[in-house]
Design a binder for these strands. Structure first.
Lengths: 345, 345
DNA sequence: TTGTAAGCGTTATCAT
DNA sequence: ATGATAACGCTTACAA
């Protein structure tokens, strides 16, 4: 590999001059400058970033810790981080905890997590990253992040009370989607929530109720039933809700909404016309069901971008490292299940 | 950050001694050794990997170039690479080309790709990676990889004629799945291929025909119809094939198989009993359709692992860098669409 | 405008 | 057994 020194030799100048040229510093005759540039190009010179970082103390690199790369949200978040990094001329190094691959849905002991995270942080730190972004595999509160790491840390798609965190806004999504339901003519809306202890559920429900209130529609609590995020619970609750005479259902995730679709297809309910249905998550599945499912898209890419830009701002000194919660809005994806089938087959 | 020097000071020894201890070299008194280890631990010492790589010339790091991180296969392949790296005590750096995000399905000009790849290689090389794994976003032949990069290069999920490449075995999958269809009682099998110029299609079809031949079943070419990978083509061709009296359909991807399911549900054909149906790709979708779709799972994780292990072998000198094609077997995922519904709702 | 030289954190050679 | 020192490729005062 060509080094700054070999260029200096070929160009018959000192390494300092080469360095200046390569770093775009002034104080070099244009002629010399061109000559050096030519030589560098001929030699196919590529700076050794490790050496540069060693010298300058800044690696222009951030670390990304992903709880699990194979969970469907993660790649898009990383994509967002990557774009923000590119724009800021930063690099990134990835560390994959493989939590889901390792433990599945089972919670391992907290200290196992703590250890895994600590190891990952150490590896990243050993590589001299200037900061770290932690990407949760689902939206939860993280308690096992190092209280104080030597570099700033930002959470994406999860929150840590002591850190800047970027998440999406469940409450607003619940509000917006309810307005959408009302806009397409719903007047009696049933809701299938997740398990009662889910913070997602309570926020989404809150948004729903607030939207109803703002539209002067009384909220009937009997029309809200808890599911377990799985398809079957959607199926069962759909029956109950339909029996109670709802003309719309807000299913708090797509999987349960698919269950609702199952029920309706069996019961001969025309979803989109007789029943307005909306899910949450924008699974690929939702664009493929019949009818296509209206749903809520979580701004994954944007979460990544925002997390990176928070971190970059901290690194540039533009902003202090302080607890902070950035909430990004979700997008309502309106499809046939609320709009109706324009062109029936 | 604690350095080797600060440890030396605290321990009242020279940095050379510290280095020896930290690298497990002999020639240090056990007492001194323990003392240094203690100090290092107290100071929370972490070696500066960049400095180490600068000095030693080896970074113990490979680069991963992903054509597009958000394409569904990619994360699992990376996961495989990551595990292999961890085991070998290597690190990895990711570069994401975002091809699909940038161009969608449109092919950009070849020189655009060439440039993107060259840039990515340069970035990785600037970070002193010892080798590179190139992950295609779909299985294709790559022509735009640098003829000669300064480090070894291995392709995963795509092939490059001049490089070691790890892919899955379409032909064998076609063979195996046909045997599965025969095993569950099929005797007249229709096949929906992709576009005629797709190499996947020809390999899968070849495997299919070979399996029929081996089982002494005459291949009826009129039962093979080309689709376009999309759902609608599955729907249409299903009608034709069913009209021709097939009792099984091999749809060369899941999406078209879903189209077949659409048709059958409309036509009142009981898939799993009256018609055996198998897809290809193991999309999440396939486990959620009704009936659940039998399909072929591509060994993504294993491809990543194998690619990494090829590269690692080359790096260790255990193997020379030479063109080579590693083909991994796919798994048949048998579900209700070929096994029938054991417990109908 | 150009060059000299120190030093970033390591490793490794060669003295002591 | 231990330590002094050069070198890896680079940046950056400072000197010329």
């Amino acid at each position: 590999m060509a080094t700054i020194r070999s260029i200096a030799e070929h160009a018959h100048v000192s390494i300092a001059t080469v360095s200046k040229v390569l770093n775009g510093k002034s104080g070099v005759r244009e002629e010399t400058r061109q000559m050096i540039l030519n030589v560098a190009h001929e030699l196919n010179y590529r700076p050794n970033l490790n050496a540069r970082s060693l010298k300058s103390g800044r690696a222009q690199t951030i670390g990304i810790i992903a709880e699990d790369l194979t969970v469907f949200n993660t790649p898009k978040i990383i994509d967002g981080v990557a774009v923000a990094c590119d724009e800021a001329n930063y690099h990134y190094i990835l560390a994959n905890l493989r939590m889901f691959q390792r433990f599945g849905h089972h919670q391992a002991e907290e200290k196992v997590y703590t250890e895994m995270v600590r190891d990952a942080v150490n590896v990243l730190l050993a590589r001299q990253v200037d900061g770290i972004i932690y990407i949760g595999s689902h939206s939860h509160v993280i308690s096992y992040l190092p209280e104080y790491s030597e570099v700033p840390l930002v959470c994406a798609y999860c929150t840590c009370p002591s850190l800047p965190s970027v998440v999406y806004d469940d409450e607003k999504a619940g509000y917006d989607l309810t307005e959408h339901l009302l806009a397409v003519g719903a007047s009696r809306i049933g809701m299938i929530t997740g398990p009662i202890d889910s913070p997602h559920s309570s926020s989404r429900s809150m948004g729903h109720m607030r939207a109803l209130y703002d539209h002067r529609i009384p909220y009937d609590p009997r029309l809200t039933l808890p599911g377990d995020w799985e398809r079957d619970s959607g199926y069962e609750i759909a029956g109950t809700l339909l029996g109670a005479g709802v003309d719309a259902i807000f299913s708090q995730n797509d999987m349960m909404a698919i269950g609702v679709l199952d029920y309706c297809s069996k019961a001969g309910v025309n979803v989109g016309r007789d029943l307005k249905l909306i899910g949450f998550d924008n699974l690929e599945l939702s664009s493929v069901s019949r009818p296509r499912l209206s749903t809520v898209a979580v701004p994954l890419f944007e979460i990544g971008q925002a997390a990176a830009s928070e971190l970059l701002k901290i690194l540039s000194g533009e902003q202090a490292l302080a607890p902070k919660l950035v909430k990004l809005s979700c997008n309502i994806i309106a499809r046939e299940s609320t709009l109706g089938t324009e062109a029936p087959e």
